[in-house]
Nucleic acid binder design. Structure first.
Lengths: 125, 125
DNA sequence: TCAATAAGTTACCAGACAGTAACTATCAAC
DNA sequence: GTTGATAGTTACTGTCTGGTAACTTATTGA
C-alpha cells in the first residue's frame, strides 16, 4: 500500500493526542470525572495552573466536545459547573490505559508516588 | 485523599504523552515498526517533515529508549538503521489503542481515509 | 457603601517548537 | 577530481504555548 505521505493532521493518533496534550488536560478531565467540577475547586487542586490557562483549557475541552459547561446564574455570585460528556468519559477510559502504561514503564520515585494515590482514588469510586 | 496539587510533570499520563507528542513521533514509531527503518525511507514517507526535525525526533526517541540506532560504516555511504526497543514495541501497542479510539471518535473524511489504509497495513503483518 | 467571592478577561512577555536554507562528511562510481 | 547518495548539522526565523499581573462583572453580606 502507498499513501502520498503521512501527516500529523490526518492521523487519528495525532489528533487524539492533541485532545489531551494541553499540558493540563488529562488532569482536568480526571478531576472533573471525580467530582471536582467548579472552576475554583479545579484551581485549588492544581495550584500551579493560572486562571488564564485553566480557562483556555476548559474552553478547548468544551469545543472538542469532551466537557459540558453549565452556568447557574440567579445564585450568589455566578456559579459554573463542569461535567464530562459521553465522549469525555470514553476518553477518560483511554487515559486510564495511558496511565497504566506510564506507571509500568516510566518508573521513578515521583511518578510512583502520584501513581499510588491516583490508583487509590480510582479504587474508591 | 489529598495531595498537594496535581502537576503535569509528576503525572504518568503527561509523561507518557510527552513521549509521543513530538508531532511526528507516533508516525515515526509506526513506520519503524513496519520496516521503514532508514533515514531516507522515513523522509520519503513523510514528505512534510524536514531533515532537521526528523533528526531531532529520532534522537529524542533514542534518548527515551524507544528506538535503537545502528550505524553501519564500511559500506558505500554510511548507513543507519533504526529499530524499536522492547519499550518502543509496547508503546506501539498503546498507540494502537489510541488509534482505535481516534478512528471511533474523530470521524471525518480525512482521518477515515488514512484509517482504512493503516488498518489494512496492520492486517498484513 | 465597601469588602469579599466566583469566574473570568486583557495585555504583555519569554521560552519551546517547527520550519527553511545552506553547509558538512564520507565513500563510490565515472 | 568531480558528481551523487546517505545522513546529517548549523544558523536564523517565525509561530505557538504557557505564564504573570492587573483589571472586570455580578452579587452577597457587614
Amino acid at each position: 500500500m502507498e499513501t502520498n505521505g503521512y501527516d500529523t493532521y490526518s492521523c487519528p493518533v495525532g489528533r487524539t493526542i492533541e485532545l489531551i496534550s494541553g499540558r493540563w488536560k488529562p488532569i482536568i478531565l480526571y478531576l472533573i470525572q471525580h467530582g471536582i467540577n467548579r472552576f475554583g475547586a479545579l484551581q485549588k487542586k492544581m495550584p500551579k495552573i493560572s486562571r488564564k490557562v485553566l480557562t483556555e483549557q476548559l474552553r478547548d475541552l468544551e469545543k472538542q466536545g469532551l466537557i459540558n459547561r453549565d452556568v447557574r446564574v440567579s445564585k450568589h455570585p455566578q456559579e459554573v459547573f463542569y461535567s464530562l460528556t459521553d465522549t469525555g468519559l470514553s476518553l477518560r477510559a483511554l487515559i486510564d490505559q495511558i496511565f497504566d502504561w506510564g506507571t509500568a514503564n516510566l518508573l521513578d520515585e515521583a511518578s510512583q508516588t502520584i501513581a499510588r494515590s491516583l490508583l487509590l482514588a480510582r479504587a474508591e469510586k
